[in-house]
Design a protein around this nucleic acid. Structure first.
Length: 287
DNA sequence: AATTCCTTCAACCGCCCGTTT
DNA sequence: TAAACGGGCGGTTGAAGGAAT
């Protein structure tokens, strides 16, 4: 089945938004609310594609959006979430109030991934780079520190080592079963865990949305689950990630994070049977 | 001062999924 | 049941601006 483009794109504006366009869009949404993106441009008097309007609103005009000045706490949280969720930027952004998926994605690509590499960590797997590569990075890093193009050189080193990662480290990558991507809306039907795990607790979608301040920031999957054991319940006080982000009990996050990683590592070393169970668990998150 | 190179990030694109008809 | 619609997501692009030469 084919799918018609979201708009004809003929005679529509593209590229950077003007102040006037921003004003029109903001005024319209303030008056009529979000949604109906396809018909919004015409009603608002904009010569823009509906998707473009949505993107502009979500990533830039929305009143509660924080811009820039990502704190070291947020850095840390992004890295941890990325290690659990991978490139699911919308899910990660959902745990960082006021941050957008686009901003986090850009920030990751331009800053954090490079930083991890410079620290000898593979940004894709979040595991230590193999010895030769780490050494090579270190050597080049030291070299580059000697000249005045420090920053520039470092990035070059990082980019080079990134290639090497793909070539040489990838095969050693342990199989970690992160939940597969799924839509936020499907979260409502997520609670379909294996009945054999009687201790299983399920976080209702509404609770998770509440944890995110009620703003489209729910996990589409619950990253605190492993093998049917849910590490997070629908109690905001128990939310390990938010409690950390808000300067709460960081030890809770640490503990749960460690527990989660430990569970993954343990499963990795288990036999084929456990592997299958893990697979089926991951699949169950999709339905 | 002019040119080249590099980095950043807003915006676009294609695809996917859930809902509606 | 199939088709169409609406919305959302992640990957990619390219213009702008800053740094280096």
């Amino acid at each position: 089945m084919g799918r018609a483009p979201c708009c004809s794109k003929v005679g529509l504006n593209r590229g950077p938004w003007s102040n006037r366009e921003d004003t029109l869009l903001t005024q319209y949404i303030e008056a009529h609310g979000e949604g109906q993106w396809r018909s919004l441009p015409e009603k608002a008097g904009l010569l823009r594609c509906g998707k473009s309007c949505r993107l502009r609103w979500m990533n830039y005009l929305k009143p509660d959006i924080k811009r820039g000045n990502i704190t070291s706490d947020e850095d840390d949280l992004i890295i941890r979430l990325h290690s659990l969720l991978g490139n699911r930027w919308s899910l990660i952004a959902g745990r960082l109030p006021g941050r957008t998926d686009n901003e986090i994605k850009n920030y990751w690509n331009t800053n954090l991934s490079k930083r991890l590499i410079s620290e000898g960590t593979d940004p894709n797997t979040h595991k230590k780079l193999s010895e030769p590569i780490a050494k090579e990075n270190k050597r080049r890093e030291n070299q580059s520190c000697k000249n005045r193009n420090n920053k520039k050189e470092m990035v070059k080193v990082m980019m080079k080592s990134k290639t090497k990662i793909g070539q040489h480290v990838e095969p050693q990558k342990p199989k970690v079963h992160l939940p597969k991507p799924t839509r936020i809306t499907s979260f409502l039907s997520l609670p379909r865990n294996d009945s054999s795990t009687s201790s299983t607790t399920v976080t209702p979608a509404s609770s998770i949305q509440d944890l995110n301040g009620g703003e489209g920031g729910a996990f589409g999957v619950n990253p605190w689950c492993n093998n049917g054991v849910v590490l997070c319940v629908g109690d905001p006080d128990q939310d390990p990630i938010n409690s950390s982000a808000d300067g709460g009990d960081d030890h809770t996050l640490e503990n749960l994070y460690e527990e989660y990683l430990q569970a993954l590592l343990t499963d990795h070393h288990h036999d084929h049977q456990n592997q299958l169970e893990l697979d089926s668990f991951a699949d169950s998150l999709l339905i």
